[in-house]
Design a protein around this nucleic acid. Structure first.
Lengths: 206, 206
DNA sequence: TTTGCTTTTGACATTTTTGTCAAATACTAT
DNA sequence: ATAGTATTTGACAAAAATGTCAAAAGCAAA
């Protein structure tokens, strides 16, 4: 009798990491098993041994990323925090995770397009979206914020999520290296905090 | 002697339109020539007759989209307009085009990832990026705006570009239909104008 | 209607990518 | 060391997708 050795899990992890890299860069259709194998430093045939086929491999990597996403989107039910605090807290935790994995965001965007159902689960199982949306609504109801909750919500997602999804685009637009980009993203966290304080707070003063 | 009949151009247009649809939906790697042919209502072999191969077809469609994108990104060299006016003008023209073609934005984002080189040309050939970035810089230099030009630039791109790229994601998050989404985008144009006036203008008053 | 061209079509070839299998190798417990 | 299992490998098969070609069909002018 043989226990699935630690080595197996290790290899699986290496493969998934390699696959992840290639999938994120090239997408499901564009990824080549050979490239993944090379990246993992194993023969292509071994890929089939561990994961019968491309789709299975993709799903394996992907369900991992589900978990990663949930980790990345922290959610604390302190209903009564002021809007500002909710947004800032979310931003901070989101950024600290997203900076480690900027590629994931574009991938997500695509999945929402390619496989909406599976993404729906992700959202449904995780109420943070509704929570933030409602935070905007409440703030408006209380007269602390002017305007439309949905639009504010979209704005908030845009300024936090998009810069990661558009990593390559931004690099090209600002004509900067990856290091510069990461630098921008590092300081962007503080920028966003300032943004929240100014924009979602000064609304009423107009 | 025969003049390339009007019919040829027509067929080419039909093919390109079909190809465009499939490419935007599936990306270069994911698109199948057969599907494009079906979509265009012609035999797959004819595709090769008009455009020798997939890449040529892609480029043909794509250079059209280059034009489309350039059309979509209006650029007038009125250097001396105030920042606000520049941004608002850009936003209006951008929105009027983007609403007709939300798919293009996500496609672009992906291409920047998968084929950065070809995207570079698009940007290089069109100075609007630099123009807007510089508009931010000038405004800061003049003391009319506080903060960092790059960050503001990213914010501006985020709130305009992202909501189109994230069409499906937003639909799921707001749990709304496509019509609702388009509705939101319609009214978002005005929202953004308000946003520009408030945020990129009130910065100094803090 | 014939000539000379363009366009379409289907059969086929090629290439690319994925998937299978059995033999070789490595590993582990007895 | 050996048996038994896990893993790797390379040769091969199959499938999927692209690309080529020549013959057929269409069309317009003489």
């Amino acid at each position: 009798m043989i226990i699935p050795t630690a080595n197996r899990k290790e290899t699986e992890a290496i493969i998934k990491q390699a696959a992840r890299k290639v999938f994120l860069q090239k997408g499901l259709a564009g990824a080549r098993l050979q490239e993944i194998a090379d990246e993992a430093g194993i023969g292509r045939t071994s890929l089939h041994y561990y994961y019968r086929n491309k789709e299975k491999l993709f799903n394996a990597v992907f369900s991992d990323n589900f978990l990663e996403i949930k980790r990345r989107i922290p959610y604390q039910q302190e209903e009564d925090l002021p809007l500002e605090d909710i947004l800032i807290q979310f931003t901070k935790e989101y950024f600290s995770n997203a900076i480690k994995n900027p590629e994931l965001d574009l991938f997500l965007l695509n999945e929402f397009c390619a496989r909406p159902e599976s993404m729906l689960n992700l959202i449904k199982g995780h109420e943070v979206t509704q929570f933030i949306l409602q935070a905007f609504e409440k703030s408006i109801q209380k007269g602390k914020l002017k305007g439309n909750a949905q639009q504010h919500f979209i704005t908030f997602i845009s300024v936090t999520f998009f810069p990661f999804a558009a990593k390559n685009m931004i690099q090209q637009m600002l004509q900067c290296s990856e290091e510069d980009y990461l630098q921008y993203m590092q300081s962007r966290e503080d920028y966003i905090v300032g943004f929240i304080e100014q924009y979602f707070n000064t609304q009423i003063k107009k």
